[in-house]
Nucleic acid binder design. Structure first.
Lengths: 138, 138
DNA sequence: TCACAAATGAAACGATGTTGCATTTAGCAA
DNA sequence: TTGCTAAATGCAACATCGTTTCATTTGTGA
């Protein structure tokens, strides 16, 4: 299945209109394999109005097409949702990794599920971010 | 050791002057046992200038007295550094927990260290946040 | 192809966080 | 105790982030 068909499906399934902003954003996210900070998205989609971009991101977040991979003091990173990553809660074997060399943020699946428990607490969601050096930069 | 002595020590050890803003901030963080969002800090220390507050937080962050416990789209949470929590990197058995009922963020120590590995990656730091219902609210 | 809901763009706004600069203060030394 | 000096503060101004309102445009299903 080619990219355009995939985008059409993603949008249609959620009854979202196929607009330039949405298509361009999804193309960008599909072509990068990593999570992308807002600042880069804005640069790449400079033809799209800033407000429209915020709204496009919000809509796709709410509909579970994309997710926030990382908050930073500087930037928010976005990525396409994969299989292990619904809009309700991220599986505990899905983490976000930031490479300190190439600075890219990527989603990584772990072989073993991480299980966290605290005496007397009910834990619903876990969010794990890690940093270090990625495969490409080692 | 009483609170004032403890604060004096914290500041002296780092050659920081004992100013109203610093003392009040540290008192606040010591009396709450949880991490506190900036908005609350600002409300509690309303006599302190907003800019001074930012600078006070920054200084104490850099000197390893406090740490950021959580980023939120809305607020940044701060907490005192405990033993398991230096300014260099958080131990992997230290997590930040947000209760969905009382909305408080607290630092929690895990009995078992969490170990994350990804094939081909070098992992330096791990950051874990969890949410659910805390002991008091269950 | 038409009608309508959805999406966009522009202006305005509030909140967050920073910088430069003049003034004040904490803490040390004489 | 006083005076000095570097550090800390307060203020003004500014940049960025993200949202809301409202008029206009556009995608899509009938």
């Amino acid at each position: 299945m080619n990219q355009e068909t995939k985008i059409n499906q993603l949008l249609k399934k959620r009854k979202l209109k196929k607009t330039d902003a949405r298509v361009e954003l999804l193309e960008l996210l599909m072509n990068y394999q990593t999570a992308i900070p807002f600042s880069i998205i804005q640069k790449e989609l400079s033809s799209t109005d800033r407000i429209t971009l915020y709204r496009t991101l919000k809509t796709l977040l709410n509909k579970g097409v994309i997710h926030k991979a990382l908050y930073n003091e500087k930037d928010t990173y976005y990525a396409l949702c994969g299989n292990s990553c619904s809009n309700i809660s991220h599986a505990h074997n899905h983490i976000h990794f930031k490479c300190n060399k190439c600075m890219q943020v990527s989603c990584q699946d772990l072989e073993k599920e991480i299980y966290v428990s605290i005496e007397g607490f009910k834990i619903d969601q876990i969010n794990i971010t890690a940093s270090g050096i990625c495969q490409q930069c080692i």
